[in-house]
Design a protein around this nucleic acid. Structure first.
Lengths: 191, 191
DNA sequence: CCTTGTGAAAGCATTCACAGCC
DNA sequence: GGCTGTGAATGCTTTCACAAGG
């Protein structure tokens, strides 16, 4: 597959494809192109996604449930250990085969297996406490969906996802003429 | 409120705050700071978010429901008109006061009121058809949560949100020492 | 004083364009 | 011939640092 074809399929430029891949080594064959299967393997390894990383979700509401059901996580190097909530009627159930437990069990579960990433899918009010609990049990990477800025020690990495901002960005480039700096979609079909 | 305080509250640098705001004019008072209320008004207006933009969600599953419940959308210039689905047991219900309707009603609803943005929160398999339907009824801005690259005419703007990618990015900067700027070049042992 | 507003510098990312190689 | 790999050029963003101004 040529860089031009990869570009087409992923919505980026061919120069970008070649430049990016060049950072990983000389992966293609001149006059021929790239071997996608090998590329996929190499990139997965390079990103450290071969060992299924243990992930927990705090908040088993609609968003937490949606994330648990989102197929593709498991195929991309992640494994959900559990969802945590405080609502009694949810605890003990399962979502997409993932158990829903009371947040108080976090300590116990974290002792058993190191949690690589914690996802916060709680309402805004509960997000900071969720973060504190995660940090308490040794989680150092947090993906936060709640619309608040979390206060965390510098050893902890937080990645903020604000769904409303996505809508706002889209709304901004609404009237035809304005063009976004990052114009293209990201490919997902090769899995 | 000083640029320093705004920086603290939002998680960016103070220089960034000042530079960004400077593009909108001289909004602060030297020696004093900025008036947040006025800033908020101005920015909302500048982004064209004063007129509550009509938004529809296709897919009333967990993700669609989570989005409908996500408070803050309405406070940020958006108004959900309806959720659309094909599952009979969902149709006729409401989610956060928003009616759930059959996708076939899209045409009718779009004729009544111009839809500014369509959100796709369907499974991957249904995403392209959802996009086609939205485009059919005149929607030109699409926020896509399904992990597929949508094929759309150039007049339509698509913004892709891939939740798994967020996790992957976070996972990459896990081992403390890894720095965003410098990808570690590695020998190509595969391929 | 204190904080903004902003040129200049630095840093980072994308695109160009072409030599090198299959 | 065709396509990769890559320096060089371009463009964009962030940071620096300080004069201007309440």
């Amino acid at each position: 597959m040529s860089s031009e074809e990869i570009a087409e399929a992923t919505g980026v430029t061919s120069a970008q494809v070649r430049k990016d891949l060049s950072y990983l080594g000389s992966l293609g064959t001149r006059g021929v192109g790239y071997q996608v299967e090998g590329l996929h393997q190499l990139i997965m390894r390079q990103l450290g996604l071969v060992e299924n990383l243990p992930v927990v979700i705090v908040g088993a509401g609609n968003l937490g449930t949606a994330l648990a059901n989102y197929r593709g996580f498991s195929q991309r190097g992640f494994r959900f250990v559990a969802l945590y909530d405080v609502a009694e009627d949810r605890i003990g159930t399962t979502v997409a085969d993932i158990p829903v437990r009371h947040v108080d069990r976090l300590t116990q579960d974290a002792a058993q297996e190191e949690i690589a990433i914690g996802i916060i899918a709680t309402p805004a009010e509960a997000a900071q406490e969720a973060a504190d609990r995660l940090i308490d049990v040794g989680v150092r990477c947090i993906l936060n969906f709640a619309p608040v800025v979390l206060k965390v020690p510098p050893t902890v990495t937080v990645r903020q996802v604000d769904l409303a901002i996505e809508l706002q960005i889209l709304a901004y480039y609404r009237q035809g003429t304005a063009s976004p700096t990052r114009p293209t979609p990201i490919a997902e079909d090769t899995l």
